[in-house]
Design a protein around this nucleic acid. Structure first.
Length: 570
DNA sequence: GCCGTTTTCGGCCCGACTGTTTTCAGTCG
């Protein structure tokens, strides 16, 4: 049993206890232990064999004993008991935005509802509004929440799909005679959410490649298996298409399947102007002769264009830019010098300052900016001014130890509902960089929430605005912000806007990045890491920057600290 | 249920919003 599976059981225990109205601290202790277990760098099975389970943070006597039972017997009596009391379907209701443990329990006990479709049906029949504490508005809210879920279902987060695609590519490379294996489609363009995974490969032995593909361990169901195309469903529900083709047409096929559709249409129109018809199989001249392209570069070259990076292929002017020789030199993973959004155990992060710094140093970074939550976000263990001072002392100590690597002192301060911050100015003034964010009062109307954001941007102590639009993919819409006003004010005051690399945020996304850059706003990329693993999300943030045509000069954390210090407003 | 350079017991859980209320419960971050 791996760490993820173990953590899942404790997470479910927490959910079930909460539905039963269990003690908040106890519920939270299970949840925090689950997080800690999931991201622990060493397999719990290993630690268990050596009797070292208690070394895992947030695993105490009781949870260690439960892990022991789980690993020795493959079962956990306590978990099984709870499952008898709380049906599976009731747990699934917690995934509906706006439905928490109390409502889930109510829906189950009073109406016998134990699945999302049942709740949706009952809500449409207006049966929820007669429950105690619920009225028509609550019913609408629940229906809206279910619609949000549906909207994402069928689509997966880029952060989920990308590692899976990369793993499949690696496995195929190792176990089959496939060459040139590449994921294409919206995944290659790095869209924040993707429908299914499309992979292309070239080979002289298609049958063997396909046979290796359908035998991958993640495959739950084979929908289609042929010599040119096979389709499978993975055990997590993702659909994967593999196309195998000959090498001479690889370029046009890759270009075609990468899309976007709109980009391809524009490309074909441009080709027609030059008397060429473009399809996935190649170019055709008016006299019927064919031009095949083994590489994508040749596809673009044939009609007089430089190769266009996939992230830009969204029909947002990239073809015009390419024709004019004005394609940007997009920022790359290698340009990044540090991470500007990092949590530690001073708030809701798992690891210590030194652990996070060591992990960042191992990635080749020059610095990280610590951005622990401040006191307003109490549930996240937000820092008081006293804790800020303690953290400062620890940073100094770590910096002495790890020099020239540098831990920058900062915080993720709360922008309160009136636009003020929840740490005093004199505390903020002492920090290297201050990140501010909205985490509550997300449903304020446009005028109010915009003014609130502008007030934070105007604060001379605020350097960066984190996850500016507040969206959570598949869970929550953006806040009602007037983004244009935010961009203008950021430009005017020299405030940096963040690209948050958390898979369910990816906020700002490409379109916002583009607008910000047009107005001369500087951006930063932060992973919002809550544990060492989380630092690895940086490429997702870089992908959003690239989708917005950002160059290295547009991204604050590609600069060295001394240069950047001169550029920020403080 | 976890945790401890003030503690082995008593903290940990804050603030805002929404929808249902007429003084509060539930949800969220």
């Amino acid at each position: 049993m791996n760490n993820k599976e173990i953590s899942q059981i404790f997470r479910e225990i927490a959910d079930m206890l909460e539905i039963q109205g269990g003690d908040f601290y106890r519920v939270n202790a299970y949840r925090r232990a689950a997080d800690s277990i999931e991201h622990h760098p060493v397999a719990l099975e290993e630690l268990w064999k050596e009797g070292r389970l208690r070394e895992v943070p947030r695993v105490g006597e009781a949870i260690a004993k439960k892990i022991d039972e789980l690993l020795s017997t493959g079962q956990l009596g306590y978990y099984e008991e709870l499952k008898e009391q709380v049906p599976d379907g009731v747990l699934s209701l917690l995934t509906i935005p706006g439905v928490g443990p109390k409502t889930a329990k109510l829906l189950h006990e009073k109406l016998g509802l134990a699945s999302i479709p049942e709740v949706e049906h009952a809500a449409r029949e207006e049966r929820l509004r007669h429950l105690p504490g619920l009225r028509a508005r609550s019913e609408e809210k629940i229906l809206h929440g279910i619609e949000m879920l549906h909207r994402l279902s069928g689509r997966s987060l880029l952060g989920t799909a990308l590692p899976i695609a990369q793993e499949i590519v690696e496995r195929l490379r190792a176990t089959s005679p496939a060459e040139n294996i590449v994921p294409v489609g919206s995944l290659r363009r790095r869209k924040p959410t993707i429908g299914d995974i499309d992979i292309l490969a070239t080979t002289a032995k298609p049958t063997q490649v396909m046979s290796a593909f359908v035998k991958l361990s993640q495959v739950a169901e084979v929908l289609l298996q042929g010599d040119t195309k096979s389709t499978v469903i993975l055990d997590n529900g993702l659909q994967v298409d593999l196309r195998v083709l000959s090498e001479e047409r690889f370029g046009t096929l890759m270009q075609y399947f990468t899309g976007s559709k709109e980009h391809n249409v524009q490309l074909r129109i441009l080709a027609l102007d030059q008397g060429l018809s473009l399809s996935e199989y190649g170019y055709k001249k008016e006299d019927g002769t064919e031009i095949t392209c083994p590489t994508e570069e040749e596809v673009y070259e044939t009609i007089g264009l430089p190769w266009i990076p996939p992230e830009m292929r969204e029909a947002r002017g990239e073809i015009e830019a390419a024709r004019a020789g004005k394609l940007p030199q997009l920022v790359t993973d290698g340009d990044i010098r540090g991470d500007f959004h990092v949590h530690t155990n001073y708030s809701d992060g798992v690891h210590t300052i030194e652990e996070m710094a060591q992990a960042a140093k191992a990635k080749g970074y020059d610095y990280i900016l610590l951005t622990d939550h401040t006191r307003g976000l109490g549930v996240a263990g937000g820092m008081t001014p006293e804790r800020v001072a303690e953290q400062r002392a620890e940073i100094k100590w770590v910096n002495e130890k790890l020099a020239p690597f540098r831990v920058l002192a900062g915080a993720e301060v709360e922008i309160r509902s009136n636009g003020t911050l929840d740490l005093p100015d004199e505390v903020l003034a002492e920090m290297d960089l201050v990140v501010a964010a909205i985490h509550s009062g997300l449903r304020q109307e446009r005028e109010k929430i915009t003014q609130r954001m502008l007030a934070a941007i105007r604060n001379p102590h605020v350097d960066i605005i984190a996850h500016p639009t507040g969206r959570l993919l598949g869970q929550r819409e953006e806040i009602a912000l007037d983004f244009e006003a935010v961009v203008r004010e950021a430009a005017k005051t020299g405030t940096i806007l963040e690209i948050n690399a958390q898979p369910n945020r990816l906020d700002l996304d490409g379109a916002h990045v583009m607008r910000a850059i047009q107005e001369g706003v500087l951006l930063s990329i932060g992973t919002d890491a809550h544990h060492m693993d989380g630092l690895g999300l940086m490429p997702l943030g870089v992908a959003m920057a690239r989708r917005g045509w950002a160059e290295a000069k547009d991204i604050a954390n590609t600069m060295n600290w001394e240069d950047l210090k001169k550029k920020v407003k403080r």
